[in-house]
């Protein structure tokens, strides 16, 4: 179980996260949603120990801030929202770095890297230079790298965790679905998945639990049907949102109503986008 209590993050003089409580269970996909700048990435960085945070933090009973980097690396993999690569590694080499970080070497690392590449449909691109991939392909290669690091959803120390910051933002729909399947499979096999998402309909199809952030606070948390409701979402996103229930297969569609954005500067009649990165 991943639990944060009264989590506060200050960067410079600004308070970015303000006494936030957060809970995620292994075996579930937990999705963090919220408008731009609401603190989703900051929350991920605090939960993964990347930045200092006040408050209580517990990863399956231990405070991750007290673990060594290599101990933590065996328990959780992190896919950042933005990723660069300084040198011309091939796709296979990038993914193998993940497998090696997860403790594999030699043929085992190769095999795991190959399997991770298959899982994101990049098998055929193993020999290409990462820097020459498209943005969406790079995102999938990064996901494969992270997956190769924490391949087994359960380890000797307990469940493993995948932290994914906007993993599907640059993907086409089929690959979005593939990544959603991957996340769900990982959770069903006993691992924990924590993902930041913008697409609320996609969130509804995958999330066991949704946490809605607004200005550094968690304003709602619970199952999709509880959080993904117009009454909960509209004050946070500042536009009208229609939530439509489809039956076959059963799922929720959350869609903004054109011309309803109440952001400063939004002129009446101009369609506001609620999906900007």
């Amino acid at each position: 179980m991943l639990e944060a209590r009264d989590l506060t993050v200050r960067l410079g003089r600004r308070t970015i996260l303000d006494g936030l409580d957060f809970l995620a269970h292994p075996g579930e996909v937990t999705v963090i949603v919220g408008p731009n700048g609401s603190g989703k990435t900051t929350l991920m960085r605090a939960l993964t120990g990347e930045i200092a945070a006040e408050g209580r933090l517990s990863l399956d009973g231990t405070d991750p801030r007290g673990l060594r980097p290599w101990e933590l690396a065996r328990r959780r993999g992190v896919m950042a929202q933005f990723a660069g690569l300084a040198f011309p590694f091939t796709v296979l080499e990038v993914v193998r770095l993940g497998a090696e970080a997860g403790g594999q070497s030699g043929d085992a690392a190769d095999a795991r890297a190959g399997a991770a590449l298959r899982r994101v449909d990049l098998e055929g691109h193993a020999a290409r230079l990462y820097q020459e991939l498209s943005g969406g392909e790079q995102a999938r290669a990064q996901l494969a790298r992270v997956l190769a690091q924490v391949w087994e959803p359960e380890g000797p120390e307990g469940p493993r965790w995948l932290f994914l910051d906007e993993p599907v933002a640059s993907l086409d729909v089929a690959h979005q679905l593939q990544v959603m399947d991957l996340a769900r499979d990982y959770a069903r096999a006993g691992g924990g998945v924590i993902a930041v998402m913008h697409d609320l309909s996609l969130t509804a199809t995958i999330a066991d639990r949704v946490v809605l952030l607004d200005e550094g606070r968690a304003v709602a948390a619970g199952p999709s049907e509880e959080v993904l409701r117009s009454a909960v979402l509209e004050p946070v996103y500042r536009c009208r949102l229609d939530v439509i229930r489809l039956d076959d297969p059963p799922r929720l569609i959350v869609t903004p109503r054109p011309g309803t954005a109440t952001l400063a500067g939004a002129a009446p009649g101009i369609t506001a986008s609620a999906t900007a990165g």
Binding site: W70, V78, L85, A86, A101
Partner: peptide, 18 residues
């Protein structure tokens, strides 16, 4: 250094005492 090629945060997440 291999990990650092992916950025400082990624290197740390991969278990490197950066």
């Amino acid at each position: 250094l291999n990990g650092l090629a992916l950025g400082e945060a990624a290197a740390a997440h991969m278990g490197i005492a950066v």
